[in-house]
Computed example of a mutant assay.
Amino acid sequence: MLRILPGVLAMAAVVVASNILVQFLFGQWLTWGAFTYPLAFLVTDVMNRVYGPAAARRVVAAGFAVGVACSLIGTQIMGEFGPLVTLRIALGSGLAFLTAQLLDVAIFDRLREGAWWRAPLASTLVGSTVDTAIFFTIAFAAPLAFIEPANDVSWANEALPLLGAGPVVPLWVSLAVADWGVKLTLALLALIPFRALTARMV
């Protein structure tokens, strides 16, 4: 356990920072949390490369536990429109994190024998896509209103041009696409620290 402690601490820091920064807007479609959360995939991939999939899954489990704690705390903090974390957001966040990270671990392990960049890039791209789809759908899609009937997400379903210029879609779709774009960009940029960290640790 001691050998993966740096990974556990790094994952916990990413999760806590993202839960705080998601409260602050960055432009019209993003929050600051969009720029820190994708680092969770970097932490998972480094642990996977250096210590293997079992160790990476333990780091993911630790991150999930921290995320649940953050959600529980968030439900007790009242914002302008109610609790900072609603049931739908907590459920979407937890399921998205756990599903995407474990998928990342599995894909990385399957591709680990290829070129050094293939496993982290492919696993992060797939994981990020699944993460975005699960979170935004559960948290904001109108057909899932039955999950938390008292939570009014009509604002997220306002029909607007995609990212202000495309076809008309619910607002939450634009938020999801913007978030996904940041994740994909950071997946590419993260190859640099991934290479440096794994070379140093191995």
Score class of each variant (00 low, 15 high):
residue 29 W to P: 01
residue 177 V to W: 00
residue 140 F to Q: 07
residue 163 L to R: 11
residue 187 A to H: 03
residue 17 A to S: 13
residue 186 L to Q: 03
residue 191 L to A: 01
residue 44 T to H: 05
residue 42 L to F: 07
residue 201 M to T: 12
residue 168 V to C: 07
residue 100 A to F: 04
residue 165 A to V: 14
residue 80 E to H: 11
residue 30 L to Y: 12
residue 126 V to T: 05
residue 25 L to T: 14
residue 114 G to Y: 02
residue 160 L to D: 13
residue 100 A to P: 01
residue 1 M to I: 14
residue 75 T to K: 05
residue 166 G to E: 09
residue 2 L to G: 06
residue 24 F to H: 07
residue 186 L to S: 03
residue 157 N to Q: 12
residue 139 A to T: 08
residue 27 G to D: 12
residue 98 L to I: 15
residue 11 M to S: 04
residue 1 M to W: 13
residue 117 W to H: 14
residue 165 A to L: 11
residue 31 T to Y: 03
residue 91 L to A: 15
residue 55 A to F: 14
residue 200 R to P: 06
residue 111 L to P: 03
residue 141 A to F: 09
residue 109 D to H: 09
residue 8 V to E: 15
residue 169 V to N: 07
residue 36 T to M: 12
residue 103 L to G: 10
residue 168 V to S: 09
residue 143 P to I: 09
residue 54 A to P: 03
residue 63 G to I: 10
residue 169 V to Y: 06
residue 87 L to N: 11
residue 17 A to V: 15
residue 99 T to F: 10
residue 103 L to K: 01
residue 200 R to I: 08
residue 178 A to Y: 06
residue 89 I to A: 14
residue 74 G to Q: 00
residue 104 D to V: 04
residue 5 L to V: 11
residue 114 G to D: 02
residue 149 P to V: 13
residue 199 A to Y: 08
residue 64 F to L: 10
residue 44 T to N: 04
residue 44 T to L: 05
residue 137 T to M: 08
residue 141 A to I: 05
residue 58 R to K: 08
residue 140 F to C: 02
residue 85 V to D: 01
residue 86 T to Y: 13
residue 199 A to H: 09
residue 84 L to T: 03
residue 13 A to Y: 09
residue 20 I to Q: 14
residue 19 N to K: 13
residue 201 M to E: 11
residue 162 L to N: 06
residue 114 G to F: 03
residue 177 V to P: 03
residue 181 G to I: 15
residue 43 V to W: 03
residue 79 G to L: 02
residue 186 L to G: 05
residue 98 L to N: 00
residue 113 E to G: 01
residue 4 I to L: 13
residue 111 L to C: 07
residue 6 P to G: 10
residue 43 V to L: 00
residue 149 P to N: 06
residue 1 M to G: 07
residue 4 I to W: 13
residue 15 V to N: 03
residue 27 G to H: 13
residue 169 V to H: 10
residue 44 T to G: 00
residue 178 A to R: 07
residue 170 P to H: 11
residue 108 F to A: 08
residue 60 V to F: 07
residue 171 L to R: 01
residue 43 V to T: 05
residue 98 L to R: 06
residue 96 A to Q: 05
residue 14 V to D: 07
residue 172 W to M: 12
residue 94 G to V: 08
residue 150 A to I: 15
residue 32 W to D: 01
residue 109 D to W: 09
residue 33 G to F: 15
residue 119 A to K: 07
residue 19 N to R: 14
residue 199 A to G: 15
residue 139 A to F: 09
residue 45 D to Y: 14
residue 38 P to K: 04
residue 101 Q to V: 03
residue 110 R to D: 09
residue 99 T to K: 01
residue 144 L to Q: 02
residue 124 T to Q: 09
residue 196 A to F: 12
residue 155 W to Y: 06
residue 185 T to K: 01
residue 73 I to V: 15
residue 33 G to V: 10
residue 6 P to S: 15
residue 166 G to N: 12
residue 37 Y to W: 09
residue 67 G to Q: 09
residue 187 A to Y: 06
residue 107 I to C: 08
residue 55 A to V: 14
residue 109 D to K: 03
residue 32 W to A: 03
residue 156 A to W: 05
residue 117 W to V: 09
residue 181 G to P: 05
residue 55 A to S: 13
